[in-house]
Design a protein around this nucleic acid. Structure first.
Length: 285
DNA sequence: CACTTGACCTGTCCGC
DNA sequence: TGCGGACAGGTCAAGT
C-alpha cells in the first residue's frame, strides 16, 4: 500500500480540500470495509485530516473520528463537483479524477457538492468510526512506534530501540509498525541499500555507525518520497488521481538483476517474511 | 513468549 | 491464445 509518503501526500491534499466541509451522505457496498454507523457522520463538519503511521484520521466536530487505512490498493479520490465553469456556471466534468468504478466501495458526499471516493481493488482497506476521545487509546493507535520524521525522534532513540529487538532481521523490523511507524516495503528496501546494510542482518548486530546511517537514510528516503508525491509502483494515485514520482528515484526496489551503480554487481531478490526483498550482494554485507 | 505462515482479495505479468 | 503460477505498497490471526 501506500506507505508513509503516499499517505502523507493524500493527507495534505484532503486536509486542504475537505476541512470545513459538512458530510451530507455516506454509502458503501462492502460490509467489512465500513466499521461503524454512518449516522454518526452525516451532518458533521470536518475539522482536520491527520496521519499516524499509515492511517488517516479525519476529525469531525461531533466528537467522532474517521480512521481510514488504504492497505495495499486503497485510493482516496476527491472529486470537486462544486467547481463551476466560470463562463457558463455549469459544473465542470471530473477531468482529473477517475470516475467511480467497480473498485469504489465507500463514497462520502459533502455540502459543497464534492465527493470523496474510497476505491480498493483488493478490499483490504477499511473505514472505521471511533469517538475522538477513544482514538489515541485504541489498540491500533496506541501501539505504533515513533514517527520517523518527528524531530523529537533521534538517532539515539533509534539505536536504543534496535537493542530491544536484537534477534530480528533488520528488514522485517523496519516493517514492524510497533518498532517504527510508516515505513513499508519500498522505503525499507531503499533505506537499507543506501545505508549499505544487508536486510537479513540481525538488528542487534548493527553497530552504532550503521544504526546512525540507517536512521539517516530512512528519513532521507521518506522525505524524497513526500517531495516526489509518493511511489506509484502499481496502483497508487494521490487524492486527485495523479501518480507519484518516487519510483524515478528508487535505486533498488523491484530491480532484481539490474546493475548496482556503485559496484557493478547484480541486484538479488529474496523473500523475508514473505515480502520481496532486494539487495546488492556486494554493497550490503 | 518470539517467530513464521496463511489469510484476506483481485489483478497483472511472465513462461510454457 | 490459454493456463498456471508468482507476485503485488499491509496487517492480522493462527500455528509452531
Amino acid at each position: 500500500m501506500p506507505e508513509l509518503p503516499e499517505v502523507e501526500t493524500i493527507r495534505r491534499q484532503l486536509d486542504e480540500k475537505i476541512s470545513g466541509l459538512t458530510i451530507t451522505d455516506v454509502n458503501f457496498d462492502v460490509e467489512k470495509m465500513f466499521k461503524g454507523n454512518k449516522k454518526d457522520l452525516i451532518g458533521s463538519k470536518i475539522k482536520s485530516v491527520n496521519r499516524r503511521a499509515k492511517l488517516l484520521e479525519v476529525n469531525l466536530d461531533n466528537k467522532n473520528t474517521i480512521l481510514l487505512h488504504l492497505k495495499m490498493t486503497g485510493q482516496l479520490l476527491y472529486n470537486d463537483k462544486s467547481s463551476t465553469d466560470s463562463y457558463s456556471g455549469d459544473p465542470l466534468p471530473p477531468l482529473k479524477t477517475p470516475i467511480p468504478n467497480k473498485s469504489t466501495h465507500v463514497t462520502f458526499s459533502f455540502d459543497n457538492g464534492a465527493v470523496l471516493y474510497f476505491n480498493d481493488l483488493r478490499k483490504f482497506g477499511y473505514v472505521k468510526i471511533l469517538p475522538t476521545g477513544d482514538v489515541e487509546h485504541s489498540r491500533i493507535m496506541s501501539e505504533f512506534g515513533p514517527e520517523p520524521l518527528d524531530p523529537k525522534f533521534g538517532e539515539e532513540d533509534f539505536y536504543a530501540r534496535l537493542q530491544k529487538r536484537k534477534g530480528v532481521k533488520i528488514k522485517q523490523l523496519l516493517l514492524d509498525q510497533k518498532f517504527l511507524a510508516g515505513v513499508g516495503n519500498i522505503y525499507a528496501n531503499e533505506s537499507l541499500y543506501r545505508a549499505g546494510i544487508n536486510p537479513s542482518k540481525k538488528a542487534g548486530d548493527l553497530g552504532r555507525e550503521e544504526s546512525n546511517k540507517l536512521f539517516h537514510y530512512i528519513k532521507k528516503v521518506l522525505e524524497i518520497g513526500i517531495k516526489a508525491g509518493g511511489a506509484s509502483d502499481q496502483t497508487y494515485v494521490n487524492a486527485f488521481g495523479k501518480k507519484g514520482k518516487f519510483m524515478d528515484f528508487a535505486k533498488i526496489y523491484g530491480k532484481k538483476g539490474e546493475i548496482c551503480e556503485f559496484c557493478g554487481s547484480k541486484f538479488e531478490r529474496i523473500a523475508l517474511g514473505g515480502r520481496g526483498t532486494f539487495f546488492c550482494p556486494t554493497c550490503q554485507k
